[in-house]
Computed example of a mutant assay.
Amino acid sequence: MVSLPEELQAREAAARRRVEELQAEAAELALRLERAREDLSRLEITRETVAQVLAELSAAEAEGNVAAGDTPEAKESSMPHGVGAMVVPPWREGLVVAVLPDVYRDIVEVIADAPGPVQAKQIVPRIGLPTTTGKIETTRSKLKRLVERGWLDEDSPGRFTLARRGPGRDRSNSR
């Protein structure tokens, strides 16, 4: 017959082995999760890049930048290359919000739905981000970029609205 202390030691050893096995499984799952997140990130970046290139090509065709007599070499050299590519194209007549990367499109849609001027700290939770200082500042820089490119107006410091467009309307943006 086994004594009680020996039985407890045996059970403790078995429990310790099970904990170690589970920790090893958790570490493996964490590694697999990190790899999956990296794959997802690469795919998101690729999709955004493709959308941007297509938008730029579409905008170039709409503006008639590519003349009918251009050679293929001239067309290639006039297209932007990856280095220094513009993620947020300048707004121009006929350009729709769909050409913007997802986060910029979300920001513009939140502002479009707002009854008045909106601050960065009000936008952050509406686009699904935590309201940390870093996320607010990142969003504020995106808002400023949208103002610079003509998608938004900054009527007073830190308060953003859709850009006013159309005949007879003021199109002045933030300083």
Rank of each mutant, 00 (worst) to 15 (best):
M1D: 07
V2F: 11
S3K: 01
E6M: 12
E7R: 05
L8T: 06
A15I: 00
E20F: 00
Q23T: 03
A27H: 04
E28Q: 15
A30E: 08
A30H: 04
L31T: 11
R32V: 06
E34A: 15
R37D: 00
L40F: 13
E44Y: 12
R47H: 08
R47L: 09
A55P: 10
A55L: 04
S58L: 10
E63N: 12
E63M: 11
A67L: 08
D70Y: 10
E73Y: 02
E76W: 01
E76M: 09
G82S: 12
V87E: 10
P89F: 13
R92E: 08
V97T: 07
L100A: 04
L100Q: 02
I107Q: 02
V108M: 01
D113V: 02
A114Y: 10
V118I: 07
A120W: 01
V124S: 09
V124A: 11
V124P: 07
T131E: 05
I136P: 03
T138S: 13
T139N: 02
R140H: 15
S141G: 05
L143N: 04
K144P: 01
R145T: 10
E148C: 02
E148V: 03
W151K: 08
D153W: 13
S156F: 11
P157V: 07
T161A: 13
R165L: 14
P167D: 06
P167W: 02
D170K: 00
